[in-house]
Amino acid sequence: MSGLEVLGLSLLAGVILLGALGTVISKDLVRAVLWLALTLVATAGIYLKLLAGFLAGTQVLLYAGGVITLAIFAVMLSQRVEGAGVRQESRGLVVGALAAIAVGGVLVAGILAAPLAAAAAVPPPSVTDLAASFMGEFLLPFEVLSVLLVAVMVAAITIARRTDP
């Protein structure tokens, strides 16, 4: 990697980790959602760095667009919003930190021990390649996914519907 690439990747990684920490530490639930939005948008930058442009677009549309909007609505509908923000508490900070460090340690040790080659020299897949894969090799899971999405939509409406008259 050239110096400029290292700098860009480090900046993106810094923003992502800052946003992730903000998401899990912030006392205000609405702020936590916004920190998550920052993380998700920066992740789209990582996808661009890995030459996955279509995925970066999907990430911004679905995650930063859809999920964040849903989460904000859920916060507003489920909490008593009073004054400045929506407070929330955490518990078991020490145990949680120890577990997270243990998980991260195992992951990092595994990554550092793995014999990873440099990225393949082949050109990245174009959107046409992705579409051909969806309509060819992965057609069955693609169709099953559409059935699942319908089921989830009906289920979400049924669960969240107001039943009292």
């Binding site: 992730a20 998401t23 899990v24 955490s90 518990r91 078991g92 992951l107």
Partner: peptide, 15 residues
């Protein structure tokens, strides 16, 4: 890996 660990911390500590 770092991001996943932070997520684990959040799942365990958030109420």
């Amino acid at each position: 890996a770092a991001m996943f660990s932070i997520g684990v911390y959040g799942v365990l500590t958030r109420r």
